[in-house]
Amino acid sequence: MNSETDISKKYWKPKSKWWFAAAVLSIAAAAAVNALVPDVQTVNTSYYRIVLAAFIAALLALWTTPVLARKLRHKLYHYSQFIAAAGLLLAVLDLLTTKSDILKLPFFPGPAQIIEVLFTERNTLFICTVYSLRLFFAGLACGVVLGIATGVMIGWNRQWNYWLFPVLKVVGVIPPVAWIPIALAVFPTSFYAGIFLLVLTSWFSIAFMVATGIESTPKAYFEVSRTLGANDRFLLFHVAIPNAVPSIFTGIATSAGMCFMTLVIIEMIGAKAGLGWYINWAKAWASYDKVYASIVIMGVAFCIILGVINVFRNYFLRWQKGTVR
């Protein structure tokens, strides 16, 4: 496979340094707007400007990095148009809020104010993020383990399939958040209640995907293996399960999304920590800037989570490179 054409297929936007320059200039313009136009709302805008300046510095540093130059530069150029648009959007939002009060507080804080909150509230936000991520990963990990185990059993063994599949089907269609009242009453802490709900969220969809993956193994794979001397154990671990790996990852990725949703809901309803709880608490004080700040963190956190899942996926499915998409 030609890695050169691979790169240009993935990063297909014009490879022009002018678009990159436009991206840098547009972020600089956002910073300039913030620095030059007088404030109408009272906001400490220095954090915002530091962030923009740091971002410009990072862009330029990446651009001039000699190592990895080729791929990195393709990537930078590819995202240049998007960054340019984002810079303009920030400038416009800044003008509409902090600089003019056209969009009113407290519901529409400007970008500078949200960045300010991210800095001033960093300790609380950091703790809340850690709590949320801890709950998320503990719950998802349990769900993944249970889901893979039951999925393999259902997909492989008739008895297990007979007894478990109907249960899976019925329990699987109930929205997990419907269990919140029960979970909060039964479990000693909201943490365990949260884990229970996250497990409910991920278990069934992963089990279902794994079972489907195992059942879809071509008969020829089994037959060929048996003529090569394989026993049932080999067929399960070296044929059926590897064949199910792509669907296992599809299951994990979709249930990660659903788990994130469940997580925020249970934190808003029942927990005493975490980003969902923080949103609720900030709302009670009408500090909508904090609500936005924690929404921003959620977005970034979930992108990172998906990125991590993708890294694992690409490793386990490296044999698929070039056959899909």
Partner: peptide
């Protein structure tokens, strides 16, 4: 046994 379609394991 060799099948008409090679039936190699893609992974």
């Amino acid at each position: 046994y060799v099948f008409q379609q090679a039936a190699l394991f893609p992974w």
